[in-house]
Every structure is written in C-alpha cells, then in structure tokens.
Amino acid sequence: MLMGAHQTMTAKRRPAVEAKAWDFALRVEVFGYAEISAEMTISMEAARDLVRGWEAEGRIRVQRGGSGASRKMFELTPAYRQPKDRSGQIGQQIWTAMRGLKTFTPVDLAAHCRADLRVDLREASAYCQALLRAGYLRVTRTAVPGQREATYQLVRNTGPRAPRERRITTVWDPNESAFAYIPGVAPRKGGAQ
C-alpha cells in the first residue's frame, strides 16, 4: 500500500469503520493510534478520534506512554475484555443484561445477548440457576410448568465482570468414601504418606 493512501471516514461510513476497528481492538487487546490507522487504512486523525471516543465511553484505558517520546498505548478495560470461550462470552452477555434489568426471565436474558452467540433458553436458564445457588439472584415469581418461567432479580451486583462456574479437580478415595484432596482446602491428616 502506498504511504498516505487512506480511506476517508465519512459520517455514513463511520459506524462500519468503527465496528471493524473495535473488532480489531478486541482481537489484539493492546494497541495505539497507529495500529488502528494501519489496520483500517484511515488517517491518524480519524484513528485518534475513534480511540478517544472509546476512552470517553470507558471501553479502553491508557496502558502506557503518552509523555515525551513514548507512544501512547491503550488496553481494553476489564468490562470490555472478551472471554475467549463461548460459555464465558454467554455468561458476560447475560450478566450485563441482568445488571441492566430490574427483573428478568431466562427468555429476556437470551434475547439481550448478541445474535452471533445464539444463546438458547437452556443456557440462559442454567446460568440463572447457577447464580441463584450462589446467592446472586432471588426468585420474584415462581415458574408454572408449561405456562410461565421463573422471574428473577439480581440482588448481588458485584461489578461488570460476570461470575462464572468453575469445575475443580479433586481426588476421591473410594476406600475411605472421602475426598483426599480439594484445591484450597488443607489435606486430611492421618492418611498414609
């Protein structure tokens, strides 16, 4: 590409250019004005305008630089950092919806998720059940099988990052019918060494 050959970012093209630039920012997670400019083939001024808008919205923050000869680099804020796995993305989308709704059903939550994730009712319901067990939700209206689903309310909003279920690896001893090791719990005393 020739130096200085940039696409003009008109008001009509801006939403499409910004969406592609944001996808790039999500992929690389750390970037500067020059990276956005080069990736989108837009001027440095247009790239600065996009990045400053994201910073004002709280999507990104300065990671380093910006004083003297050092280049200003940006990173995604924790609320906008995308989990790499699908279940993490679904959880984050549902959690964000929960935080914005007064009461909700799993259908409401699935409807608020990005279309490309294709969240189904089972996944939204399972996430609600996990958070209900953990004390983040309370039931405001019970389900009636075949007629209506349960309605929930978020009662423990701990911040923008979604709580997630974790699977842990344990050691089960069938001889003693007990767990010999659970991560984070002191090992049992008196066992053979």
Score class of each variant (00 low, 15 high):
Arg133Lys: 08
Pro83Arg: 05
Thr105Tyr: 03
Leu101Glu: 12
Lys102Met: 15
Lys102His: 12
Val107His: 00
Pro78Ser: 07
Ala134Arg: 03
Thr105Arg: 07
Asp116His: 10
Arg99Ala: 09
Glu149Thr: 13
Gly100Ile: 00
Ala143Thr: 05
Gln89Arg: 08
Glu75Cys: 15
Lys72Ser: 09
Val107Gln: 02
Leu109Val: 09
Arg118Tyr: 03
Tyr136Ala: 11
Gly146Met: 03
Thr151Tyr: 00
Asp108Leu: 08
Phe74His: 13
Gly68Gln: 07
Ser125Leu: 07
Ala124Arg: 01
Leu109Cys: 13
Ala111Met: 07
Ala110Val: 07
Met73Ser: 11
Arg141Pro: 03
Trp95Lys: 07
Gly68Pro: 15
Ala130Lys: 11
Arg71Met: 11
Thr142Ala: 09
Thr151Trp: 01
Ala111Trp: 00
Gln82Lys: 12
Thr103Cys: 11
Asp108Gln: 07
Arg138Gly: 08
Asp120Ile: 15
Ile90Met: 09
Glu149Ile: 13
Lys72Glu: 07
Thr140Ser: 15
Thr142Glu: 05
Arg99Trp: 01
Gly146Thr: 05
Arg138Val: 08
Lys84Ser: 15
Leu121Gly: 09
Met98Glu: 10
Pro78Phe: 03
Ala115Gly: 04
Leu117Cys: 09
Asp85Thr: 11
Thr151Pro: 02
Gln89Tyr: 02
Glu149Arg: 13
Asp108Val: 13
Ala143Cys: 06
Leu101Ser: 08
Arg86Val: 15
Leu76Thr: 04
Ala134Gly: 10
Arg81Asn: 07
Tyr127Cys: 06
Arg71Phe: 02
Lys72Gly: 01
Ala134Thr: 04
Arg71Leu: 13
Leu131Ser: 04
Thr96Lys: 04
Val139Cys: 13
Ala97Lys: 01
Gln92Gly: 13
Leu117Asp: 05
Gln92Arg: 07
Cys113Ser: 12
Ala134Lys: 05
Leu117Tyr: 06
Thr151Ala: 15
Gln129Glu: 06
Ala130Gln: 05
Gln93Ile: 00
Arg114Asp: 15
Val107Tyr: 00
Ala111Tyr: 01
Gln147Phe: 02
Ile90Ser: 02
Glu123Arg: 03
His112Asn: 14
Thr140His: 04
Gly68Asn: 08
Ala130Val: 09
Cys128Ile: 02
Ser87Gly: 06
Phe104Val: 14
Gln89Val: 10
Ala143Gly: 14
Leu117His: 03
Ala150Ser: 11
